[in-house]
């Protein structure tokens, strides 16, 4: 479990002081898939870099299973980073090894695992993200964009983290690639039972996959709740110029027409099924 308490981070450049994030509070339970949404510059990147202590807060705390991760007496920095795996945006740009295997093995090696254990972890991580074993001896640079990204995610998974944080894992991919990678993120959560933090600016992706959504705006956490609770407030989201998924816009309009569509429908097929069953219409 991760608890973020009154987290504030202030940047100083010259004489200017700006709060990148201000008094953020959030608890992410074990096994939860938490979506974080917001514009570029809303502070979501700054926030997640605190989760594995890449950034130190100006004030506030981050507790990992009750331990303050910034208290070096309580927990070593390396230990924090092992437990909270962070996958940056466009992670394929960090690959550097000669083979896919070696690249995924980089983290376990840094943590002094034995050869056997490294092998075990690499194979497990590769399997979880859907990389075939015959790719492991290839150069990561010979792979396609989507595969490279899987290698990079596997490279973080190989640490066996308790929490996995992904910044825009689907950015720049085509619709099919996006869907596939998000499906794999869900699979990671299901198979390993770990907490996953999914950062995105695509409302559609987050709505379809997250248990809860936190909305960041201007460095503050404006809302946090289930997708149903968040999308019920479409007016507020529009004001923050965040995109509400088309399906949500449609269903909200139907609700205004007096059709009581349940709040927890975010998928097109589910919506269609519900309408067909509950809205009276003449065939033809």
């Amino acid at each position: 479990m991760i608890e973020i308490r009154h987290l504030t981070h202030t940047y100083t450049s010259g004489i200017h002081k700006t709060d990148a994030i201000r008094d953020v509070n959030l608890t992410i339970a074990d096994g939860e898939l938490m979506g974080i949404i917001g514009h570029t510059g809303s502070g979501k990147s700054t926030l997640i870099q605190h989760l594995n202590a890449l950034l130190k807060p100006t004030s506030g705390q981050v507790l990992l299973d009750g331990v303050d991760i910034f208290d070096s007496k309580a927990i070593a920095l390396k230990e924090v980073r092992k437990n909270v795996g962070l996958v940056f945006q466009y992670p394929e740009y960090q690959l550097f090894e000669e083979t896919v295997y070696k690249d995924i093995a980089f983290a376990p090696k840094n943590y002094g695992c034995s050869e056997e254990e490294i092998k075990e972890r690499v194979l497990a991580a590769a399997k979880t993200v859907g990389l075939k074993e015959n790719l492991l001896d290839k150069s990561p640079f010979a792979l396609s964009g989507g595969q490279k990204r899987r290698v990079a995610i596997a490279g973080v998974l190989a640490m066996n983290p308790k929490v996995l944080v992904l910044d825009e894992p689907a950015a720049g991919l085509d619709p099919f690639g996006r869907e596939k990678i998000l499906y794999e993120v869900e699979k990671i959560r299901a198979q390993r039972g770990i907490s996953v933090v999914l950062v995105s600016h695509s409302m559609e992706d987050v709505a379809a996959h997250a248990d809860r959504i936190a909305v960041m705006h201007d460095g503050e956490m404006k809302m946090c709740g289930t997708p149903a609770e968040i999308f019920a407030q479409d007016q507020v989201l529009e004001e923050m110029r965040l995109d509400v998924p088309q399906i949500t816009k449609i269903l909200n309009a139907l609700r205004k027409m007096g059709i009581a569509v349940p709040e927890d429908i975010f998928k097109v097929q589910e919506a269609a099924d519900w309408i067909l069953q509950n809205v009276p219409f003449t065939k033809g």
């Binding site: 594995n52 962070l86 940056f88 960090q94 550097f96 980089f106 943590y111 490279g155 973080v156």
Partner: peptide, 27 residues
């Protein structure tokens, strides 16, 4: 960004002798 990403995978740029530090720059 790359330094941060490799740190997130447990890379260590600060300890070790000169040779080890030079090797740590490869990633």
């Amino acid at each position: 960004k790359i330094m941060k990403a490799q740190s997130a995978r447990g890379a260590d740029f600060e300890s070790g002798n000169l040779l080890q530090r030079a090797k740590a720059m490869i990633p």
